[in-house]
């Protein structure tokens, strides 16, 4: 999904860079509410895990592959604002050190993966959480649902950006169908990896999982002191 230099016109790249800058700016403010001394190390782990997982292209048939984008995974584990920062750092390092994703396309890639991927993934996770039973077992299932939809959403966003300002004229319907079609399949891989990773943390330390905060799994451990739950 890493867009190289040259796919989108300079104007489109400038526009997505502006969107990315505003999005990351908002995330910097919002992440303050999600991050403290306890959650910051987990967020660092999420960033390196997403980097590692993005190296692992899995085959999706007919000579095509896909890899984790990690937006839903990161948002569920550490919160969507922090997730936007984590994925943006991964994309920055990939573009500068690994020549993966263009430098002029960095804004586009942040928009697709750190904004659309994270926020569609997190939004759909919330929708699924609202429908599923209020139990910790629902959290990985809802995360997988968000993950599955986040990938085609990012793919569709790319197709629309290309329609607005691609390097060459391509029939938008054809591009949208091809992008979404392949990325629905890649989204299934995304869902599986997200289910396993979120499931592993939820099973061991649900209290560390941002998207399970409201479930208070350790209710029995809580004490009331001076009328305050501690």
């Amino acid at each position: 999904m890493h867009v190289p230099d040259g796919f989108l016109t300079a104007q489109t790249s400038l526009a997505t860079a502006a969107v990315a800058a505003v999005g990351v700016g908002i995330a910097l403010r919002g992440a303050r509410r999600e991050l403290d001394d306890r959650t910051a190390p987990l967020a660092g782990l999420v960033a390196v895990f997403v980097f590692a997982a993005q190296m692992l292209n899995f085959p999706v048939g007919a000579g095509t592959s896909g890899h984790l984008l990690g937006g839903a995974l990161a948002a569920v584990l550490v919160g969507p604002f922090t997730a936007t920062l984590c994925i943006s750092v991964v994309l920055l390092v990939q573009a500068i050190a690994f020549a993966d994703g263009g430098l002029t396309a960095l804004g586009t890639n942040v928009t697709l993966m750190a904004l659309v991927g994270v926020w569609v993934g997190y939004g759909m996770f919330r929708v699924a959480r609202a429908v599923l039973p209020k139990r910790t077992a629902s959290v990985p299932i809802a995360a997988a649902f968000g993950a599955a939809l986040s990938v085609p959403a990012a793919a569709a966003t790319f197709a629309l950006l290309f329609a607005a300002g691609g390097a060459v004229p391509i029939a938008t319907g054809k591009l949208l169908t091809a992008m979404v079609g392949w990325h629905v399949l890649i989204g299934l891989g995304e869902a599986a990896i997200t289910f396993l990773a979120v499931g592993a943390i939820v099973a061991t330390r649900p209290d560390l999982v941002y998207g399970a905060q409201d479930l208070r799994p350790d209710h029995a451990d809580l004490e009331i002191r001076d009328g305050v739950v501690v």
Partner: peptide
């Protein structure tokens, strides 16, 4: 052991 095939975007492109 990662797949060396082009990713979804490269393939479509």
């Amino acid at each position: 052991y990662a797949s060396g095939h082009p990713d979804g975007l490269e393939y479509v492109a």
